[in-house]
């Protein structure tokens, strides 16, 4: 069973996203409420992928991503950024980071798992319910 780590400072979004992925994809979901915590959990648990918010206090998504890249233990974990900023400039900036994909908030809870599976090339995953 695949394990996905959700990093988001918003408790509600973390919960909705976790419920959505658990219900539609049957993944094991780990959560972290900050970039710093996300780095710790990622190093300890080595999830198969990380779904991470862009705008978080203290350490934002891009910074957390770069930190993850610097640690050989976590550098191989694909990161999908989840952002509420859909301005073209932001998109291009995030795309330059080298993340696996950028998905947008608000997301559709029924297709979020399928979208993640698609961008990560997890073709064996169940498609949209």
């Amino acid at each position: 069973m695949r394990r996905v780590l959700i990093v988001d400072d918003e408790d509600d979004i973390r919960e909705v996203a976790a419920l959505s992925l658990e219900a539609t994809a049957n993944w094991t979901i780990l959560t972290a409420s900050s970039g710093r915590e996300g780095i710790k959990v990622a190093a300890a648990e080595k999830p198969d992928a990380i779904l991470m918010d862009v705008m978080m206090p203290e350490m934002d998504g891009p910074t957390t991503f770069r930190q993850l890249q610097l640690n050989p233990e976590t550098s191989g974990i694909p990161v999908v950024l989840l952002t509420a900023k859909v301005q073209g400039v932001d998109q291009r900036r995030f795309a330059g980071l080298g993340v696996a994909a950028i998905l947008f908030k608000p997301f559709d809870p029924l297709t979020l798992a399928a979208q993640i599976a698609e961008v990560l090339g997890w073709h064996d995953e169940p498609q949209n319910p």
Partner: peptide, 10 residues
């Protein structure tokens, strides 16, 4: 809106 839409959708 992300939380609202997500919760309602589920």
């Amino acid at each position: 809106l992300t939380s609202i839409r997500g919760a309602l959708g589920l």
